[in-house]
Design a protein around this nucleic acid. Structure first.
Lengths: 191, 191
DNA sequence: TACTAATATTCAGTATACTAAAATAACATC
DNA sequence: GATGTTATTTTAGTATACTGAATATTAGTA
C-alpha cells in the first residue's frame, strides 16, 4: 500500500510476466500465488513478502534478484580501512596473523585478507559454504597450499585460486616469514 | 513462519548486523523497523515484506541484493598461475607494472592484480562499467587514490574500496617503489 | 548472590498481505 | 448489440507481518 520511498516493483513484474506471455491466471498457476495477489502487486497496492516474491520469481523462472534490481539504491562509495583500525584476528600463538580488510557490509560476498605466517606455521580451515573460492597472491616467502586432494607449493609472485568448500590448509614451509594476500569470494546463487 | 523453499534470510541479516556492531535497537533506529520485528525476522519466524527488507538494507547501508544470497554446488577447482607464466601488461615507460593473475575464465567477474609503482608514477583509469568496485591493499610504499570527488592517501597496511565507475587514478607520491594488491569486481547487472 | 544496565524475545493489538469468489472489463464471434 | 470466453480488478474474510510494551536473558560489578 504505502511504498513510500523505494521504487515500485510492480511494473517490473508485469513487464516480466508479459515478456513471458503469461496471464495473471497462468502465472498464478505456475507460481502458486493467487491471481488477485498478482494483480495487487502489479498495481503496487500491496507490499509483497519475500516468500511471495520468491514464488513469483520461480513462476517466471528468473532470479529473484532480477526482480529487485530495480530498487537498488546506488551510492558512491569510498571506504578506507586504516592499518590500525582494522579488526585483527590474531592467532599469534600459532604464528599466523590474519588481518581482515573488508568485514563491512559485504561480508557475505567478498573478503580481503592479509596473512602473515611465521616459518613452519600453518593454518587449517574447515570447508566453507558451497561455491566459496579463495584467491591467493604470494607477496613474500614460500608456502604450500592444500585443498581437498590438491596440493601445490608457491613462491613470491605466484597466484592460486581454488574452491574452498573442502577442508584446506596453508603452510609456510620456508625459512622466512611469508606474506600472503587473500581474497575470499562467496558466490551468489545461480549464474 | 513457513518459508519452506527459499534459503532463510534471517541469519544473513543477523550476520550483517553483527558485522556492523549494531544491536537490534540501534539497527531499529537506523532502519525504522521495530526491534521486535528485527528479532522475528532474524529468527525466521516471519516473512518480511520487501518494504521492510528495504528499510533494513538501508539501515545497514548495503544493497538489498546482498541480503538475498542463495546456495548451490560445484566441482572442485585448483588453478595455479606461476610467476613467470603470468600475462603481464607492462607500462614500464611510465614506471608502472601491472600483473594480472586471473585473466582466465573469470575475467568478467573478478580480477586480481599486483601493481608496482616507481616513485612519482601514476596510473589514470577511465570510468569502468557501472557497478565496478576496486579493492586495494597497500603492501609497500605510499600512494594517493582518487575516485571522482574523493581522494585519500594510503600507506603500508591500509586498505580501500571504492566504486570505479568514475574516472580514478592511483599515484605513488612517496620516495620508494610502491607495491599494491588490487582486486576488481565487475558486479553482475540485472537480468 | 543481588543489583544494574544493556540487549533480546515474547505478548497482545493493529495494520495489512493474501486468498477465494464475485464483479467488471476486454474481446471475440454470431 | 447480444452472448459466451477469457483476463483483470474488486470485495470480504482470514492469516500474518508489524508495532509498543512487557518480559526474559545476558553481561558486568560490587
Amino acid at each position: 500500500m504505502q511504498n513510500n520511498s523505494h521504487p515500485s516493483i510492480g511494473s517490473s513484474i508485469q513487464k516480466m510476466r508479459k515478456a513471458h506471455k503469461l496471464t495473471l491466471s497462468s502465472l498464478s498457476q505456475k507460481s502458486g500465488v493467487s491471481a488477485a495477489t498478482l494483480s495487487q502487486i502489479e498495481a503496487d497496492k500491496v507490499n509483497p513478502t519475500i516468500a511471495t516474491l520468491w514464488k513469483i520469481a520461480e513462476g517466471l523462472e528468473i532470479d529473484i534478484q532480477s526482480l529487485l534490481s530495480g530498487l537498488e539504491k546506488q551510492r558512491p562509495m569510498f571506504d578506507i580501512s586504516r592499518k590500525d583500525e582494522i579488526t585483527r584476528f590474531d592467532t599469534e600463538e600459532e604464528g599466523v596473523h590474519i588481518r581482515v580488510f573488508s568485514p563491512l557490509s559485504m561480508a557475505e560476498d567478498l573478503e580481503v585478507y592479509t596473512l602473515t605466517f611465521k616459518p613452519g606455521q600453518k593454518l587449517l580451515s574447515q570447508a566453507h559454504p558451497a561455491k566459496t573460492e579463495e584467491f591467493l597472491t604470494v607477496v613474500r616467502g614460500n608456502i604450500r597450499v592444500k585443498a581437498g586432494e590438491n596440493e601445490a607449493q608457491l613462491g613470491p609472485g605466484d597466484f592460486i585460486r581454488y574452491h574452498a568448500d573442502v577442508e584446506h590448509h596453508i603452510e609456510n614451509f620456508g625459512a622466512e616469514t611469508a606474506l600472503i594476500n587473500m581474497v575470499v569470494r562467496f558466490k551468489k546463487g545461480g549464474e
